[in-house]
Design a protein around this nucleic acid. Structure first.
Lengths: 211, 211
DNA sequence: TAGATTGTTAATCGATTAACAATC
DNA sequence: TAGATTGTTAATCGATTAACAATC
């Protein structure tokens, strides 16, 4: 593997994975960078460059084996392990994620749920009881947790992030509309939902700007 | 305004907006590119370059007026109008968005809700009755709709997108895990939630790669 | 006026694309 | 073997950063 993989490449890996899943479902056995380019919209050259950052997965004259490449990319992304998660904030968005059984199936079980709202504490979601957020530090001390999900308000998010870092989570999946301050060793993946709406509106009001 | 604004710049505009809102709330009147750099994490040079794509909003020796710049960026993003939206798919995620009163307050009212599930049809969310998805084309013919929100399954999403395009929406806000095929004139803003989790996991399993 | 800070050009850096020899 | 297609180097393109004259 190359010394340093650019973030642009890392962000494309999940996209490759999605298209390879489609190909698997269609029963396609192998695919050339050129055919894949036609589906995914990246240039064939970029596809070959991207994949070669991690190894020579293709075969000249044949292309890439779909099943093999799918397995390789899952491995590169780290999707061949399980990751225990906790979620803090069970408002509309938090409950949507906590209810989403897909994450359990994907190997991302949510093993703890926390909120400050007394109406929510005690509620059961997917067989997990929502606890008071003040129990979070203790929970992190006594359970192995890989990923902390933050679906709190903007105001509460940084404090929760601090507790998660202190509690030793390996990464934070953030849905609150702010940029969390955490030590460099703890990666944060943020989903800035409203930002995507705002830039969509930009493209709506600037039709001349479209590529 | 410059001929062509790069997508990198457009994606940063909502970020500027968020930080300017914080500054407004703190009562900060003006800020230099250098101070803003300290908060937002972009270089001062990049901030000045970005803003100068749209006009000279600053003043030498003083910096940028927070309120003025905030208003300018809202205008550039097109956030000074209202946008009527419809949402199709009222599963966990769809209901979370439909329930989120924030979008109404921001000027993005949801005026129509659609699902195929008989258990959901007839339900009222924020005073709007969920209709059968088969009514979508007729609804789009008879109402002015700017933005279509897709929170359906991956399988249904493309068909709904086609109906939205046919029905004349100006943009699509997509939460289904696929890349929609639409004419170039219709911008799509996609929120690939699972992709962000996958790239977060990449960073967790590759601690050496962190910048 | 002097100091601060922008607006803007030029330099650098990094990512994407093109090209083609290697090879299945 | 001949044709197809990768792996990889080189060229190009675009985005970021640096520098500084303009100016408030």
């Amino acid at each position: 593997m190359k010394d340093k993989i650019s973030d642009a490449v890392v962000k494309r890996l999940p996209v490759y994975l999605r298209y390879l899943e489609d190909l698997l479902n269609e029963g396609v056995e192998h695919i050339s960078s050129n055919e894949l380019s036609g589906r995914i919209g990246f240039t064939a050259s970029q596809i070959r460059q991207d994949l070669n950052n991690f190894g020579g997965f293709g075969q000249q004259g044949y292309g890439y084996n779909v099943e093999g490449l799918h397995r390789e990319i899952k491995g590169i992304l780290g999707l061949d392990h399980e990751y225990a998660m906790v979620i803090v904030g069970l408002g509309n968005l938090g409950r949507a994620i906590a209810n989403h059984t897909k994450y359990y199936k994907m190997g991302f079980p949510i093993i703890g749920m926390f909120d400050v709202n007394p109406d929510l504490i005690g509620m059961r979601i997917n067989d997990i009881e929502v606890q008071d957020s003040k129990n979070l530090p203790e929970f992190l001390r006594t359970h192995h947790v890989d990923i902390g999900i933050i679906t709190t308000t903007k105001e509460a998010a940084q404090m929760i992030a601090d507790q998660m870092v202190e509690g030793g989570v390996k990464g934070i999946w953030n849905f609150a509309p702010l940029d969390l301050k955490v030590p460099k060793r703890v990666p944060v993946g943020s989903v800035h939902v409203t930002d995507t709406l705002n830039s969509l509106v930009y493209h709506i009001v600037h039709p001349d700007q479209r590529s």
